[in-house]
Amino acid sequence: MTNTEIRPFRIDVPQVDLDDLQARLANTRWPRELPGLGWSRGVPTAYLRRIAEYWQQTFDWRAAEAQLNELPQFVTEIDGQEIHFVHVRSAEPTARPLLMVHGWPSSFVEFTKIVGPLTDPVAHGGRAEDAVHLVLPSIPGFGFSPLSGPGWGNLFTIAGGFAEIMTRLGYDRFLAQGTDVGSGIVGMLPMVAPGRVIATHVNGPSPYPFGPALSLDGLEGGERDRAERFNTFREDGAGYLHIQATRPQTIGYGLTDSPVAQLAWIVEKFAEWTDPKNELPEDAVDLDQLLTNVSIYWFNQVGVSAAHSLYEGMQAYKAFAQPAEDQSWDAGAGGWEPPPAPPSAVAVFAADLTVRREVDPTGAHARWTEYDRGGHFPAMEVPELLVADMQEFFRAQ
Results as ranks from 00 to 15, higher is better:
Val122Trp: 01
Val86Ile: 08
Lys269Asn: 11
Ile251Gln: 11
Ala261Thr: 10
Phe270Gln: 12
Leu280His: 09
His124Arg: 08
Arg62Phe: 03
Pro194Phe: 06
Glu325Arg: 05
Gly222Ser: 12
Leu147Asn: 12
Pro137Trp: 00
Pro146Leu: 14
Thr2Tyr: 08
Ala63Tyr: 03
Tyr47Cys: 01
Arg357Thr: 08
Glu33Gln: 14
Gly149Glu: 05
Val382Tyr: 02
Asn154Gln: 11
Ile51Arg: 05
Val202Gly: 01
Leu175Ala: 13
Gly204Arg: 07
Pro97Asp: 15
Pro338Thr: 09
Pro72Tyr: 15
Ile266Trp: 06
Tyr297Lys: 10
Leu241Met: 04
Pro190Tyr: 00
Pro35Val: 11
Pro340Asp: 03
Phe59Trp: 03
Ala123Asp: 02
Ile296Val: 14
Asp326Glu: 08
Pro121Asn: 01
Gly332Ile: 04
Glu358Ile: 13
Ile139Thr: 13
Leu18Glu: 04
Val186His: 00
Gly363Met: 13
Arg357His: 11
Val192Tyr: 07
Gly125Gln: 03
Ala64Met: 07
Ala319His: 10
Ile78Thr: 12
Gln327Asn: 03
Gly195Lys: 09
Leu290Lys: 00
Thr232Val: 10
Pro276Gln: 07
Asn69Lys: 04
Asp17Ile: 11
Glu392Phe: 11
Gly239Lys: 00
Asp20Glu: 12
Glu82Phe: 11
Pro323Arg: 07
Val181Ala: 07
Phe349Thr: 15
Ser309Asn: 07
Gly252Pro: 06
Phe394Gly: 15
Lys318Leu: 12
Glu370Gln: 13
Phe230Thr: 00
Leu18Asp: 06
His124Leu: 05
Pro383Ile: 07
Glu358His: 10
Asn3Glu: 10
Leu385Lys: 02
Val304Asn: 08
Pro121Asp: 04
Ala331Ile: 13
Phe210His: 06
Leu216Met: 14
Leu241Gly: 01
Ala388Tyr: 14
Tyr171Val: 13
